[in-house]
Amino acid sequence: MKGVVFTEFMELVETRMGLDMLDRIITEANLPNDGAYTAVGTYDHAELVRLVQALSNASGLSVPQLIHLFGEHLFQRFSLQYKALFADSRTAFDFLARIDDVIHVEVRKLYPDAELPTLPCERPTPDSLVMLYSSPRGFGDLAEGLIAGCIKHFGEDIKVTRVDLPKEGALHRVRFELVKQA
Rank of each mutant, 00 (worst) to 15 (best):
N33D: 09
F139K: 01
R98K: 13
F9K: 08
K109L: 10
V179K: 11
L129A: 12
V105A: 11
A114W: 02
F93K: 07
A170I: 13
E115S: 09
G138Q: 08
G145C: 02
F154Q: 06
M10P: 00
V107W: 08
I67F: 02
Y133P: 01
R98Q: 14
M1R: 04
G35P: 01
P117K: 00
P124G: 11
R77D: 02
L178H: 03
D94T: 03
K2H: 10
Y111L: 11
Y37V: 03
I25Y: 05
L69E: 14
D88T: 09
V130E: 13
L171I: 10
A97S: 15
C121W: 03
K109E: 11
M21R: 09
R108Q: 14
P166M: 09
V160F: 04
A54Y: 03
F9G: 07
V40M: 00
E106R: 12
P64C: 06
S79E: 08
L69F: 06
A143R: 06
L110D: 14
V49Q: 12
E11N: 12
M10G: 09
V5S: 06
Y37D: 00
K152H: 11
L119K: 00
E28K: 13
K83A: 15
R123H: 11
P112T: 08
E8M: 14
P136D: 08
S128L: 08
E28T: 09
V130M: 10
K2Q: 12
P64H: 02
I67E: 07
A39G: 03
E106D: 10
L171Y: 14
F6L: 07
E14N: 11
L48P: 02
L12W: 12
A58S: 07
E28H: 09
L69D: 14
L165R: 04
F78N: 10
H45T: 13
A114Y: 05
I151W: 02
A46R: 14
T38N: 07
G149H: 04
D157I: 08
F95V: 01
F75E: 05
V130K: 09
I147M: 09
D20N: 15
S128C: 12
S134L: 04
D100Y: 05
D88N: 10
A29F: 02
L142G: 08
V102T: 12
S89I: 00
L85Q: 11
S128Q: 15
L165T: 06
H73E: 04
A84F: 08
L119P: 01
P136W: 04
P112R: 04
S56R: 00
R162L: 04
T15D: 15
L69G: 10
G18C: 06
T15I: 01
F154H: 01
F86D: 01
S134A: 14
E115Q: 11
M1Y: 07
V130G: 07
V163G: 02
F6Q: 00
D164F: 01
A170L: 12
E177L: 05
L80S: 13
L19I: 12
E11Q: 11
K159E: 15
F78V: 14
A182R: 12
L178S: 05
Q65S: 15
D20V: 13
K159V: 13
R123F: 05
Q65C: 13
E14V: 07
